[in-house]
């Protein structure tokens, strides 16, 4: 097991290198520089030169990459926009995004799996068809549109505040009221962030459950006279849930991509919005670091999923 984990981590290194190269090239090869965005057009050429020197923009591309990588690893990479270390800026925002993603993942799994299992146990029934159609609807839903429809409904229909991570201008709330306020502000963004995942995962759970229900050991369980519920939830469910662990790894890229839109709409102070702002102001160091960090998160997610899979399924031998 340990050798397997070590081997997997070593395998990640070339991928990681590729990721940094691509995120660096992607931004630096594109036409147009950051100078027009960052500095007043009236400043003297000397100031521009000094500025370029500060951010190593006068070096050849491969040197810039090396310096960028060095700064990134030592935490000295500075933002174009305000000169603050990029790492600090990201670390300030990261907890909000992690909170949102974790809640969204919990909601996704706790809605999708029962839905999929129910759908599979009532195959070809009216309820199954309805669930299938709803799942397709969820997969096809533009998440930003859903967000606006929900905002319209709650703000206009019920007069409830939904933007930001808390209600502003309400001093002196008790502990429990503050908690509910924060929880309420989490609910809509995490639902919007999770909608595609819920729909997709419920289809996957249904397929997995149906596959298991056809297995020989299920027939054996039925043949020995177990109650249908016992067969489904005692024998089939646990085996059907196994492959869903790997889904965990697939969800992370969509969570990060979705965070850009969801956080922008709901004014959520996370890295998605930071990324959007950085793209808008051509803050290259921040954009590149965010791209790298999110790719690392994806790699990490896949790694964790693979290891978990090996842990829970004794049939799998990796060495």
């Amino acid at each position: 097991m340990t050798t397997y984990i070590i081997r997997r981590i070593l395998q990640c290194i070339p991928t990681l290198f590729g990721i940094t190269v691509i995120s660096f090239l992607m931004i630096n090869i594109a036409p147009g520089g950051p100078i027009g965005q960052q500095l007043d057009p009236k400043v003297s050429p000397a100031v521009i030169e000094q500025w370029e020197k500060n951010f190593h923009l006068n070096e050849p591309l491969h040197k810039q990459y090396g310096l960028w990588l060095k700064d990134l690893l030592t935490g000295e990479l500075k933002s174009f926009k305000d000169g603050r270390p990029v790492i600090t800026k990201i670390l300030e925002r990261l907890p909000a995004t992690i909170l949102l993603s974790v809640i969204s993942t919990i909601i996704t799994f706790s809605i999708a799996i029962p839905l999929g299992v129910f759908s599979a146990s009532h195959r070809y029934s009216m309820a199954d068809h309805a669930t299938t159609f709803l799942a397709f609807l969820g997969i096809s839903m533009p998440s930003f549109w859903l967000a606006y429809m929900l905002i319209l409904l709650f703000v206009k229909g019920f007069g409830l505040p939904v933007l930001g991570d808390r209600t502003f201008g309400l001093p002196g709330l008790g502990v429990s009221a503050t908690f509910f306020d924060r929880a309420w502000h989490l609910l809509l963004p995490s639902l919007v962030l999770g909608i595609g995942g819920i729909a997709w995962l419920s289809r996957y759970a249904r397929g997995s459950m149906l596959e298991v229900l056809e297995q020989d050991y299920i027939r054996t369980a039925r043949a020995k006279g177990l109650a249908e519920d016992e067969v489904r939830y005692g024998h089939a469910l646990r085996n059907a849930l196994l492959p869903l662990i790997t889904i965990f790894g697939f969800l992370i890229p969509s969570l990060i991509s979705g965070a850009v839109i969801t956080e922008t709409i709901f004014a959520w102070p996370g890295i998605g919005r930071l990324g959007y702002d950085a793209v808008m102001s051509r803050d290259y160091p921040t954009v590149m670091t965010l791209a790298t960090i999110s790719a690392v998160l994806v790699l990490l997610g896949n790694l964790i999923a693979d290891v978990l899979y090996a842990v829970v399924d004794p049939r799998i031998r990796y060495d």
Binding site: T15, G18, I27, P253, I256, V279, R282, V298, L299
Partner: peptide, 24 residues
């Protein structure tokens, strides 16, 4: 295939957003 792995790791939407913003 390693290259495919690398591209798959990127959060696509963020990537597209960045490139489109830079390219006009």
């Amino acid at each position: 295939m390693r290259f495919v792995d690398v591209v798959m790791c990127f959060p696509t939407f963020f990537l597209i957003l960045t490139v489109v913003a830079l390219l006009k």
